[in-house]
C-alpha cells in the first residue's frame, strides 16, 4: 500500500461513523445511508491526490455526501405504480407513533434541499454560512429554506397529532 492510500484508509476509517450518522439523518434509512457514504468515499478516493494535503478535507467530504443525497432525490429511486386501492400500510404514520417516527415522516414530506438545510442546521449545529457552502446556495436561501421547511413540518406534525379523523396531510 502506498503512503497516499494508507492515508486515505486511515482518514476514511476515522470519518465513516460521522458520515454514516449524517447520511442517516439526511435520508432516514440506514442502508440507504450506507449507499450514500459508499458513493462519497469512492468519489473522495478519486480526488484524494488533489485534496488530501489541502485544508477543508472534512468539508469536501461532507459536501460530497450532501450533494449525493440531493442528486439521489433528484434522480428518484422511487418507482410509482398505478394502484386501484389504498394498501394496508399506506398513509401517514399511525396515531400514537412516537415523536421520532412522526418527525421523520414530516421531514420526508419537505423538499430535499429543505431537508438537508434543516438537518445540517438543527441536528448538526452548523452555521448558516457553512450550510450554504455544503448545499451550494446563498445564505439567504438557507434562511428561507429553513423557514419554509420548519413551517411545513410543524403544520404536518400538528395535523397528525390532532385527534381529528381528517388528519391525512
Amino acid at each position: 500500500m502506498n503512503p497516499s492510500d494508507a492515508d486515505y484508509v486511515a482518514y476514511v476509517q476515522g470519518r465513516i461513523p460521522a458520515l454514516r450518522r449524517l447520511a442517516y439523518h439526511l435520508c432516514g434509512d440506514a442502508h440507504h445511508a450506507d449507499d450514500l457514504v459508499q458513493e462519497t468515499i469512492a468519489k473522495l478516493y478519486t480526488a484524494w491526490s488533489r485534496i488530501s494535503a489541502a485544508d477543508g478535507l472534512d468539508q469536501y467530504t461532507r459536501t460530497t455526501l450532501v450533494r449525493a443525497f440531493l442528486d439521489d432525490r433528484r434522480r428518484g429511486w422511487w418507482r410509482v405504480r398505478l394502484f386501484d386501492a389504498v394498501p394496508e400500510h399506506a398513509g401517514p404514520p399511525p396515531s400514537g407513533a412516537e415523536d421520532r417516527v412522526l418527525l421523520r415522516a414530516a421531514l420526508d414530506k419537505v423538499p430535499p434541499r429543505q431537508q438537508a438545510v434543516l438537518v445540517l442546521r438543527f441536528l448538526h449545529d452548523l452555521p448558516v454560512a457553512e450550510v450554504a457552502r455544503l448545499v451550494g446556495c446563498s445564505e439567504g436561501t438557507v434562511k428561507s429554506q429553513t423557514a419554509h421547511g420548519l413551517a411545513t413540518m410543524r403544520r404536518l406534525l400538528v395535523t397528525w397529532s390532532s385527534p381529528s379523523p381528517d388528519r391525512v396531510p
Binding site: V9, A30, R100, L123
Partner: peptide, 17 residues
C-alpha cells in the same frame, strides 16, 4: 424539535473501503 431524530443508524455498517 429535532432532538428525537438525533440517533445513530439502526443497522451495522455495510460501507466497504
Amino acid at each position: 424539535l429535532f432532538a428525537p431524530l438525533d440517533a445513530e443508524p439502526d443497522a451495522p455498517s455495510r460501507v466497504d473501503i
